[in-house]
Amino acid sequence: MTGFQERRSHISREMERVIDYLVDRKRGDKKRPPATGAALEGAVEIHRLSLETPIDPAEMAAFKARFTELMRTDGNRAGLGRYLGTCERDALCGAVDGYPSACWSRSVAQIVNDEFTPLELLLFEPDKDLIQDIDDALKDVYKDAPPMPKNAIPDWVPTTHWWWYAPEQREMTDWERRMHFEYDWDDWR
């Protein structure tokens, strides 16, 4: 098998894994907990791999159709809401320690929306404003968030994902970064 064929085979296995994450589970099945977040992040990995290795258009179209179909189930729609809710919580904690996690989750949501299926069609009514709420939270805290280390920003993330680049890009030593994140209760007296 050539290197190209191995990469294509790996992508196909990733597609199967993502679909398996989304397949309905029997209620109470502890061996297979809901894994919508893992499926979303797996879809982003497929997108990243597709930037390096072309994917057969028919295979990608079939994957996107099945992905969208499974994401429309109530369990996966609820899982999407939980994933975005966690992203919002991380964004709200961005000035302390949540900013990098929020950036990652926000990019996952944007790539899934842009490359696989529109999230607006998947979100339950109470969750419809979550993306805007996340963006608002990121805008509120980015001035206080420590700068993202250059190696923390994935090189394949588009520059349109402004949240990665919003914190002022100033150099911080590892000690300064750690002191920004780690404090003790005496600091609050």
Rank of each mutant, 00 (worst) to 15 (best):
R89A: 14
I153M: 08
C87F: 03
M148L: 07
I134V: 15
R66H: 05
I134R: 10
Y83K: 10
I131W: 04
V112H: 01
E69Q: 03
T68F: 05
P154W: 14
F116R: 00
H161Y: 15
A137S: 14
G79L: 05
V108E: 01
N76C: 06
L123Y: 11
F116C: 08
W156C: 08
A62I: 09
E176C: 04
E115W: 03
F116A: 13
S107Y: 06
G79C: 02
E88A: 04
I55N: 00
P146F: 13
W156R: 07
A65L: 04
L122T: 00
T173P: 04
L138N: 09
D140L: 11
C103G: 11
D114W: 13
A62F: 03
V96C: 00
C93M: 14
I153K: 15
G79I: 14
L92S: 02
H180L: 04
E69W: 09
K143Y: 06
S101P: 03
Y183E: 15
T68M: 05
K128L: 09
K128E: 13
L123H: 06
M148F: 13
T160F: 11
V157N: 06
R82D: 12
T173F: 05
D90K: 05
R66E: 12
K143C: 00
D90S: 08
Y165L: 09
W164I: 07
E171C: 04
P167I: 02
G98L: 04
M148W: 12
L70R: 13
A102W: 05
E88P: 08
E88F: 03
D129S: 01
A78Y: 14
E182Y: 14
Y99K: 06
V157L: 12
E171D: 05
F63G: 12
R177V: 02
N151L: 10
F63N: 11
T173Q: 07
K128C: 08
W104C: 04
I131L: 03
C103H: 08
T73K: 07
A65K: 12
W104H: 15
D135E: 15
T159D: 08
D90A: 13
P158D: 12
D56V: 09
R106N: 02
T173D: 13
T86Y: 08
G81D: 07
P149Q: 07
I153A: 07
M172Q: 13
Q132D: 12
W163Y: 12
Q110A: 15
D133G: 07
A152T: 07
W162N: 07
F124H: 15
V96A: 14
R72T: 14
M60I: 01
